[in-house]
Amino acid sequence: MDSLIPFTTSGSLVDCVDRKMLVVLRDGRKLHGVLRSYDQFANLVLEDTVERIYHGNAFAENWHGLFLIRGENVVLLGEIDLDLEDEIPQRRQVEYAALEPYHKNDVEVKKQREEAKAQILYEQKGFCKEGGEGDGY
C-alpha cells in the first residue's frame, strides 16, 4: 500500500501543512491563511485567516482569524510562493471598507450574468437547470 500514498487526499496535502495557503470557496471568496489541519474530505483548518477582495488594480484584506472550512465548500487550495508574491507587479492595497462596495458590485454583476446565461441555456438550448440534486457544486 506504500505506493498509494500520493493517491490519497492526506498523501497529497501533508506537505502543505504549516504553510501559507490560498483557499478559494464555492461562493467565490478567497481566503489566505496558514493550513494547520485537514482530513480526507478536504475539511480544512486555517489559522490567521484573511479574506482578500480584488477590484481592478487594487486589493483589500479583512482579518477573520481561525477557520474550520467544511470540505464541500472548497474549490481550490493553492500554495502561495512567498518569493513570487513579492515579485508580482505591485497591486495597491487599500482599506477594506473603501473597496468593499466595488467588490459587491462586481459580485452582483457576475451573478446577474450567470443567471442570464442559465436562463438562455434552459429556455433556448435545452440544458437542464443547474444546482439540481447531485450537481455537487
Partner: peptide, 16 residues
C-alpha cells in the same frame, strides 16, 4: 483571476 498569480501548485477538489 489575479488571486492565482502567486500560486505555484494547488489542490483541486474533485467535486468542482
Amino acid at each position: 483571476h489575479p488571486h492565482m498569480m502567486a500560486v505555484k501548485n494547488c489542490f483541486i477538489r474533485g467535486s468542482v
